[in-house]
Design a protein around this nucleic acid. Sequence first.
DNA 1: TAAATTTGTTAGTATTGTCTAACATTTTAT
DNA 2: ATAAAATGTTAGACAATACTAACAAATTTA
Lengths: 220, 220
Amino acid sequence: MNSLAEENYLKALFNLATENGDVNVTELSKRLGIKMPTVTSMMKKFAEKKLVHYESYKPLRLTEKGKREAGLVIRKHRLTEMFLVEKMNFAWEEVHDIAEQIEHIQSPLFFEKMDELLGHPKVDPHGSPIPDRNGKIVWKTYDKLSDCQEGDAVTLAAVINTSPEFLKYLNSRKISLGIRIKIRAVEPFDKSMVVSYGKSGSETLSNLVCERLLVEREES
Amino acid sequence: MNSLAEENYLKALFNLATENGDVNVTELSKRLGIKMPTVTSMMKKFAEKKLVHYESYKPLRLTEKGKREAGLVIRKHRLTEMFLVEKMNFAWEEVHDIAEQIEHIQSPLFFEKMDELLGHPKVDPHGSPIPDRNGKIVWKTYDKLSDCQEGDAVTLAAVINTSPEFLKYLNSRKISLGIRIKIRAVEPFDKSMVVSYGKSGSETLSNLVCERLLVEREES
DNA sequence: TAAATTTGTTAGTATTGTCTAACATTTTAT
DNA sequence: ATAAAATGTTAGACAATACTAACAAATTTA
C-alpha cells in the first residue's frame, strides 16, 4: 500500500509524463512544491518499491507497476471530481482541492460505489479520461481549438488548464463541455478567434484560451 | 487546525467522556490502540493548545474549546455515515471505516453540501445525534429496551454497539431503526425478551442485545 | 498499613517525510 | 572548450507521531 505522500508523487509523475514526456527531478519538485533533495530520496524509495526506474542524473521513468498504481490514484481523483459535480452539485472549478483529499481514501468499495452511481463515466468534469480498474487510460486524441480553421464546426470535449481562474472565465462566457462551436474568423495578427456557440451571438477568444480548449471535429 | 492524529484523539476523548464520564489515559490509550506514553505526550500538547485541562495523574477533561472541536469532528463523521447510507446505498454496517477516513477531509463546504443534500439530518444511521455547526450535541434520552416491561410498545431509535457483527446480527433479524416493538414476555432467569415487530411472528432477544437497543416509549 | 497491582510519566529511540547547506554532475552559452 | 548556469545528490537536521524500557504515583487488596 502506498502512503498519501507516495500517492501524490505517483500522480505527479504520471501527469508530468503525460504532459511533457520525460520527467526530471526539478519539474517533479516544482509540481509537488517539495524541495529537490526530498524528491531524490523519495525516488530512491520508489526504485526499491519498483515504482520507478531510477538512475542518478537520468530522467525519471515510471515502471509498469508505477504506471498502474499512478493510474489508480488518478482514477480515484477523477471519479471523485465527477461525483462531486454530478451527485453533490459542485461547480467544476470547486472540485479539485476536495478531490485531492478524497483520492487518498483507502476503500476500493467506496470508489466502486461512486463509479456505479455515476454509470461508469469515461471522463471527468474537465473532459480528462478516467483510468479503468487496472489504472489504464484510454486516450482519445482531440484537436486544440487553436489548431482549427475558419469555418470549422467543433464540439468542446475537454479543457487543458483546470485552474479555478480559467474555469471561472469559461463560466462567465457560458462555455461548458459539449457545446458546439463555430469558428467565424481567425485574426492573423494574434490568432484570436471569433466564434459562436449556444445562444451567444459571437465571442472573441484569445489564442491563449483557444490553446486550452480541446475539441472534436464534427464527424464526417 | 488539528492534524488527523489530533482529530482522532479529540473524537475518542469526547466519545469516552460520553460513555463513561471520567476519561483516563489507560482508557484513551486502549480506545485509540496507541500506547500510553504516546497518549501522555499528546495530552501535554493538547494542554498547550487549550483542548484539555491536563494535570499529571488526574483524569482528562476536554475544555469547552476541546468539546467544540471534538463535536465538529463527530459531526463530520456522522454526516458522512448518513451520506454513505442515504446517498450511496451503503449498508449501516459498512460505513464506519470509510467515515473514519472521510471525517478528516478539510473542506467545510464539502460537509455543508452533505448536510444540505441530506436535509439537515439530526441523527446518523445508528441513531446517534449529529452535532450542530458549533459542535454542540442535543441529546435525546432514550430507554434501553432491556429496561422496558412486558406489554410495553416501543419504537427503536438507536443502537449502542455499532460493530459490524452486531449490526449484521440485527440485519439477520430484520431489526432496523424505526420499527415498532412489542414486548410479549420477559424471561426472569436471563432477562431475555420475547418481542414482536414488523412481519415477524415473535423473536427472542438476549439481554445482551436488549441492552444495546435504545427505544422510545409510545407517546402517551 | 504495607505489599501488590494498576495507572501514569520520563527518557530515549524509530520512522516518515520534510528542510537547508554544501557539493557533484550535466547542460548551455560564449 | 571552457566557464557559467542549471540540475541533481549527499549529509545532516528537524517535526510529528509512534514505540519500548524503566521508573513513579495512586489505588486496591490482603
